[in-house]
Write a protein that binds this DNA or RNA. Structure first.
Length: 713
DNA sequence: CGATGTAGCACC
DNA sequence: AAACGGTGCTACATCG
């Protein structure tokens, strides 16, 4: 034990950065260089040879021991996106080099989180932030690596055909798209080694020079950022933000399970149907003549549209243009297709063509998503004790999560994106996802949180009443139905006449399902997402509402909420940002600052401030929910001594929904085993409402087999 | 051939 | 002028 001292010492700190052979750590990507730097600028780094035929680094165990010692000897560990480096180092475990990394989360400081907190809508990459905060340009080091690596790739391709150069469709690197050279930064040194380049040749050090620049910039950057965080009074909020890092890391590591059988069931069906529709389209096209007078040979696109299809539709069939793209070109998106389906003459070849084209497009889209899930997944059973069958038919995806990926506090997700998995009727791609054998899933959803926030914050009684008394006549908690009654009082009145006040809502919802009620929903979404309303003028949601002056009518009915909108706009115009609602458990004085988008002329876009304020507040709420739930589940796992995938896990976040993967209950009522745990999860989520001062109820569903099939509890 | 921009579409 | 907010991925088209 070190002696206690009264002298307050400056915390010792280092920065750490890792270079890797890719980003797919659950496939073949591995680290090959670790660099550290202390505040005086002193560097200490470890660079490993990479076997060019396997792309695996050759790592002396003593190096890992040295890295571990260096990490554990300091009070603060500065990184740019820490979970990336940890995920990289964690892969070395699989090489049998180390047992575990006891990563000091308490010591971690993240320049990426700091970058978002200080300037939420500015770039957060190290190069941009070095320029912004330190006035240092470091892009030349990356440029040098790019030139060297590209040249080294060319040498390898011609002289060493057995070497595994990164490619788009390369095995073990499903994320590789463009810029594959970034996966080969180990290559210049490998070539220098293989071809006995002289000691002074730059390729020996071009990559380590680049990496070392990053670690020395990171340590200086954190000093600058920390001072700025302090100056702006954001320390408490920053400290709270740090708590999401281990949560996100664990979510990525656990990932989500998917059934190969169920995925193939959907894919085989869609493929057959798509091919059939495609054949019909090509045959119909042959009945028409191309400009030379020959039967039109249509080449269908894999997805979307191509020139062959555009020419056929607009030049040969001469269908009218019903929509334009951003650049003014005739559109063939699903809205345009819907218009054609509703307007082309019945039993015409044109209509039949369009029907089959639309059928094909929706199936092709679904197939495209499923192909990408298959590309990214890894077989189950490497780390746990699944049975033989499960090993073969179940897989795991490890989507990447970016807590700083948006202009607000929403997270983004990629490789693959877990947040846009279709739940469309007839194309529910959540069907293949769900609990593996011996497991069960639960999903918990914050009910209407983005509508509640502005209603409660502004004190809009009529809307609050809907949320408070969802079972009461006449609207039964339905915001859409309330708005419907305001927009079309005559329809609403007639319904009351017809069936009485208590049944009017159900009656209207059914009778006007595809007309006025659908328009109401469309308009409400437009308003929620910031459609512009000008007093006395026409609101941009009016078109969606199908009601001239509709948006103004709603805004004046909900004048308090309208005031909140104006307040957010004024605040943003004055300060450039809005804040989320303060969280009394973090900093009762202030919320998270979100910079608002400006137009090219420097003015705040008026559609943005309220939207960011609400979206940001909802996601601050979600962040707290995730931190509390993860802590609770970790505690259960510790008490029950459940390790690895066998325990209780938070595995997914889709903005207002969390998904959990638990050990399965047994018997005739299996959901009962974990019901007390999910009730506590529900309570921990709802608790966030107290922190911001409004009720935030959460609904929970049990999934025995699939994410697409849930039972409310 | 690689790089870049556009179109289209999935989610909340 | 801004005119409906936030994302990620794939295919296609074009250009050097």
């Amino acid at each position: 034990m070190p002696a206690k001292t009264n002298k307050r010492k400056t915390p010792s700190r280092i920065s750490l950065d890792t270079e890797t052979t890719g980003v797919d750590f659950h496939h073949d990507a591995r680290p090959f260089l670790v660099t550290t730097c202390d505040p005086s600028g002193e560097l200490l780094f470890w660079e490993w040879d990479v076997d060019p035929e396997t792309r695996q680094p050759i790592v002396p165990p003593s190096d890992l021991e040295a890295i571990r010692e260096r990490i554990n000897s300091v009070d603060e560990l500065v990184l740019q996106n820490p979970k990336f480096d940890l995920a990289a180092l964690d892969t070395l475990e699989q090489l049998g080099i180390r047992s575990t990394w006891d990563w000091p989360w308490h010591a971690v400081r993240d320049t990426l989180l700091a970058g978002h907190l200080l300037a939420s809508n500015k770039p957060h990459d190290l190069t941009s932030m070095a320029l912004q905060y330190l006035r240092v340009k470091i892009d030349k080091y990356e440029a040098a690596v790019e030139v060297a690596t590209k040249e080294a790739r060319n040498i390898a391709k011609t002289q060493f055909p057995k070497w595994r150069i990164a490619t788009k469709q390369g095995k073990g690197m499903p994320s590789a798209k463009d810029k594959t050279w970034k996966y080969d930064m180990w290559l210049p040194r490998a070539i220098a080694n293989e071809l006995d380049y002289p000691e002074r040749h730059p390729w020996w050090t071009v990559t380590s020079d680049y990496a070392n620049t990053d670690s020395s910039v990171a340590i200086a950057l954190w000093a600058a950022m920390e001072a700025e965080i302090e100056r702006r009074g954001l320390r408490k909020i920053y400290n709270e933000r740090l708590r999401v890092l281990p949560v996100a890391y664990r979510m990525e590591k656990c990932g989500i399970t998917a059934s190969e059988e169920r995925l193939n069931e959907l894919r085989v069906r869609y493929k057959e149907e798509s091919e059939e529709s495609g054949r019909i389209c090509v045959n119909i096209a042959k009945d028409f003549k191309d400009p030379e007078g020959n039967p039109y040979e249509l080449t269908l696109p894999k997805t979307g549209a191509n020139n062959s299809l555009r020419t056929f539709i607009f030049d040969v069939l001469k269908l009218p243009v019903v929509g334009r793209t951003d650049t003014g070109a005739p559109s063939l998106d699903k809205d345009a297709k819907a218009i054609y389906l509703n307007t082309l003459p019945p039993r015409s070849k044109q209509l039949r063509f369009m029907q089959n084209l639309a059928d094909k497009a929706s199936r092709d889209t679904a197939i495209q998503y499923m192909d990408s899930y298959e590309r990214f997944w890894v077989p189950l059973g490497i780390y746990n004790e699944m049975g033989e069958q499960a090993w073969q038919l179940w897989h795991r995806l490890h989507p990447n999560l970016n807590p700083t990926g948006t202009n607000t506090l929403r997270w983004s997700s990629n490789n693959p994106n877990e947040q846009n998995i279709s739940k469309k009727e007839g194309f529910n791609l959540r069907y293949p996802f769900g609990p593996a054998p011996g497991r069960e899933w639960w999903s918990c959803d914050a009910k209407n949180i983005e509508l509640r926030i502005p209603a409660y914050e502004s004190g809009e009684e009529e809307l609050i009443a809907l949320f408070e008394r969802p079972d009461e006549s006449p609207f039964y908690g339905s915001n859409h139905m309330l708005v419907f009654s305001i927009l079309w009082p005559e329809l609403w009145g007639a319904a009351i006449e017809e069936v009485g006040l208590d049944k009017a809502a159900a009656y209207c919802k059914k009778k006007y399902a595809s007309t006025n009620y659908q328009w109401t929903k469309n308009g409400n979404f437009a308003v929620q997402y910031g459609a512009v309303d000008r007093p006395g003028g026409e609101g941009t949601a009016d078109i969606a509402y199908h009601k001239p002056g509709g948006q103004r009518l709603i805004a004046s009915r909900f004048s308090k909420q309208d005031n909140l909108n104006q307040q957010c706009i004024s605040h943003a115009e004055r300060f450039g940002y809005v804040e989320t609602m303060p969280d009394k458990t973090v900093d009762p004085e202030r919320g998270y600052p979100l910079l608002c988008t400006r137009s090219d002329y420097g003015k705040i876009k008026p559609t943005v401030p309220l939207n960011y304020h609400v979206q940001g507040t909802a996601m601050w709420w979600m962040q707290g929910a995730m931190i509390r739930c993860d802590g609770f589940l970790q505690e259960i796992n510790r008490k029950k001594r459940l390790t690895g995938y066998s325990g209780y896990h938070l595995v997914m976040q889709v903005h207002d929904e969390l998904v959990f993967d638990f050990p399965a209950g047994e018997g005739s009522e299996p959901w009962k085993m974990n019901l007390p745990i999910i009730r506590e999860v529900q309570r921990l989520m709802e608790q966030g409402g107290d922190n911001i001062g409004l009720p935030t109820p959460v609904s929970c569903e049990y999934h025995a087999t699939s994410w697409s099939e849930g039972v409310g509890v």
